[in-house]
């Protein structure tokens, strides 16, 4: 671009961008810092916090008080499990809609997306009762099913937009080459759509990892993921800043790191194919 990047202008932009970035990131940085402080130091003034000593104490206490690994594992099982299940259902559906479009394909997609519009509270009561009656409360399997269904419309939509970009001729070529439907999807479509599938996978793992309605309503301890684990710090332990910080850091670190590493794929996934 023909922007005249004078050094002065560039300096202003750099300072502004770094300031804004730092402010947005600050809460995360702050809990990270607090998690290495003693409870006494953690409630001092910001300057006091920064100049006090560092310790791993809080992490030990959090692990002693509650089973972090169990909740971490629950979060992994729920987010990865529901995403993979959703992909298995969504890939054939997206194939059908992208490559054999009919008159009603657009309507079908809109309808699928509209199920996302149904607020969870609308079905909270029956879901709660169904879970209770089938003995699914506080089980991982029950929650995997719910999270799969919640994210299915988004998974289908995203895959659909990615598949749309794959030229139909290539699939036709495979058909001419003697591939049946299974081979066509398995050997041609899926490998070609790997970037799209990857970003769909990532985004949905993140959404499922952070899902905090059903996970809070339908679990208590055994199947509780990290969202529930943190919610249990709501009060009055919330006043123990160092422990809360340590627990929070442990809850968000895995997905934060995953998110940072997969930034590029995510950006495309996040835009739902609507922005090139």
């Amino acid at each position: 671009m023909s922007r005249k990047s004078t050094p002065a202008r560039q300096a202003v932009v750099t300072v502004a961008a770094w300031t804004v970035g730092f402010l947005i990131f600050f809460p995360i940085l702050w809990i990270f810092i607090l998690s290495f402080k003693t409870e006494g130091d953690a409630i001092r003034t910001p300057l006091g916090v920064l100049t006090s000593g560092w310790t791993f104490e809080s992490y030990h206490e959090v692990q002693e008080r509650s089973n972090y690994l169990l909740h971490f594992w629950n979060s992994v099982v729920l987010s990865v499990g529901s995403t993979i299940l959703a992909l298995v259902i969504a890939i054939p559906a997206a194939w059908a809609m992208a490559f054999v479009p009919g008159k009603r394909t657009k309507d079908l997609l809109m309808w699928m997306l509209s199920t996302k519009m149904m607020p969870a509270v609308g079905v909270l009561v029956p879901m709660y009762l169904l879970f209770r009656d089938f003995g699914l409360l506080d089980t991982r399997i029950g929650l995997v099913v719910v999270l799969t269904l919640i994210n299915l419309p988004i998974v289908i939509w995203m895959l659909y937009t990615y598949f749309k970009e794959i030229p139909g001729e290539i699939l036709e070529a495979a058909r001419m080459d003697g591939a049946n439907l299974r081979s066509e999807i398995l050997y041609i479509l899926t490998p070609m759509a790997v970037p799209g599938i990857a970003s769909t996978l990532l985004l949905n793992i993140i959404l499922a990892w952070n899902e905090a309605f059903w996970t809070l309503q339908l679990t208590t301890s055994n199947a509780a993921p990290l969202t529930q684990f943190i919610a249990s710090y709501s009060s009055p332990e919330g006043l123990f800043y160092a422990k809360l910080s340590a627990a929070s850091t442990m809850a968000i670190a895995p997905i934060l790191i995953l998110g940072w590493f997969s930034q590029k794929q995510l950006v495309r996934g996040l835009t739902f194919g609507a922005v090139k």
């Binding site: 001729e169 290539i170 070529a173 495979a174």
Partner: peptide, 13 residues
């Protein structure tokens, strides 16, 4: 029958 497409339709992967 075998077909050669306008876009070649090679499997890019």
């Amino acid at each position: 029958l075998a077909m050669v497409f306008q876009s070649y339709a090679l499997y890019p992967h």
